[in-house]
């Protein structure tokens, strides 16, 4: 297992979609290669930072227009 192979398996490794033998082989390499450890760690954090980020509040005007459009459609349904 070399650094290039680690990168090509990275997505499946982070998603825990690898078979145990391949996973163990990757972890053996990570135990010896600091650069790969950093790449794996920072890629994992990249996903977590995006995943954990809260969406910004909806701007008031956009929210108003959305609910007006919905109300208009809902009124038509009720009629």
């Amino acid at each position: 297992m070399n650094c290039k192979a680690i990168i090509s398996e990275l997505a499946d490794y982070l998603d825990e979609a690898l078979d145990p033998i391949l996973r163990a082989s990757i972890e053996e390499h990570l135990g010896k290669c600091k650069d790969c450890r950093i790449v794996v760690d920072t890629t994992k954090r990249t996903i977590e930072i995006f995943c954990n980020s809260e969406p910004a509040p909806l701007p008031l005007t956009i929210r108003q227009r959305l609910h007006e459009a919905l109300a208009k459609r809902l009124r038509r349904v009720r009629a």
Binding site: I7, S8, L10, A11, D12, L14, V39, T42, T43, T46, I47, I49, F50
Partner: peptide, 16 residues
């Protein structure tokens, strides 16, 4: 999977 890997690596690099 292929696009996801590239996207993750590109974003990692940009966030670096």
């Amino acid at each position: 999977k292929s696009r996801l890997l590239r996207a993750r690596l590109k974003l990692r690099q940009k966030l670096n």
